[in-house]
Simulated scan of single mutants.
Amino acid sequence: MTLLDAAREVRERAYAPYSRFKVGAAVRGASGAVYQGCNVENVAYPEGTCAEAGAIALMVASGETELVEVAVIADSPTPVPPCGGCRQKLAEFGRADTPVLLATVQGARLATTIGELLPGRFDISHLSGTE
């Protein structure tokens, strides 16, 4: 199963009763293990969880803190990029050159990287007294 297949599979389990916009994400940890996440909505909209955040949380809960590849899929006319918060989350656990594949269920694809999605990212070097 490819990383995109893993994202496609978990997308079907997304909980999106309000927007009906299901998103699936999969990340590959440095160990090679694949972690899946889907969006989980809440009637109080800001309280939902993005697919990318869910996949990262599962990776960390499983004991890994480095991702080496990302795939995101949604039913959209064009590939859907991660939101700003998820871009920062991806940057926390991946390098700037980490490949990100964005796709639609109809087959459109866009290959990019974490660095292209979040240039000028905020990182530990910005914290006072730490480097």
Rank of each mutant, 00 (worst) to 15 (best):
S19E: 01
L90A: 03
T98H: 11
M1L: 11
C86H: 00
E64Q: 11
R109L: 06
I56N: 04
T104Y: 10
R8C: 06
P17L: 11
F21V: 11
G120K: 07
D123W: 06
A16V: 10
A96L: 11
G115I: 05
A96W: 10
P81A: 14
R8W: 05
T98C: 14
T78E: 15
V72Y: 02
V60R: 09
P82T: 08
L101G: 04
T65N: 15
Y45I: 11
A53K: 02
L90V: 08
V43I: 15
V70N: 05
I114W: 07
R20W: 14
R20T: 15
A108H: 03
C83R: 01
Q88F: 00
G115S: 06
G129Q: 01
V80C: 11
G63M: 08
G24M: 04
T104G: 14
G63R: 10
L127Q: 00
H126D: 08
G63N: 08
V70D: 15
A44V: 02
V105G: 05
R8M: 13
E69I: 03
E52D: 12
A6N: 11
E64I: 03
N39F: 01
R121M: 04
M1Q: 02
Q36H: 05
V105E: 01
L67W: 09
C38H: 03
S31W: 09
Y18F: 15
A53T: 09
S19R: 04
V105H: 07
P82Y: 06
E64F: 06
T98K: 00
R28L: 02
V68H: 02
D75C: 03
F122V: 07
D75Y: 02
E52A: 12
R13A: 04
V70I: 11
E12H: 06
E47S: 07
R28D: 14
A71T: 12
G107Y: 07
V105I: 13
T65M: 13
K89I: 12
P81K: 12
G29E: 06
P79R: 15
G129A: 04
E12Q: 10
G29M: 05
R13L: 01
A61N: 13
V23T: 10
L110E: 13
G32T: 13
P82V: 06
E66Y: 01
G37T: 10
R109W: 01
L101Q: 05
V60M: 02
Q106V: 12
H126T: 01
V34R: 01
Q88V: 00
G32E: 14
A7R: 12
G107A: 01
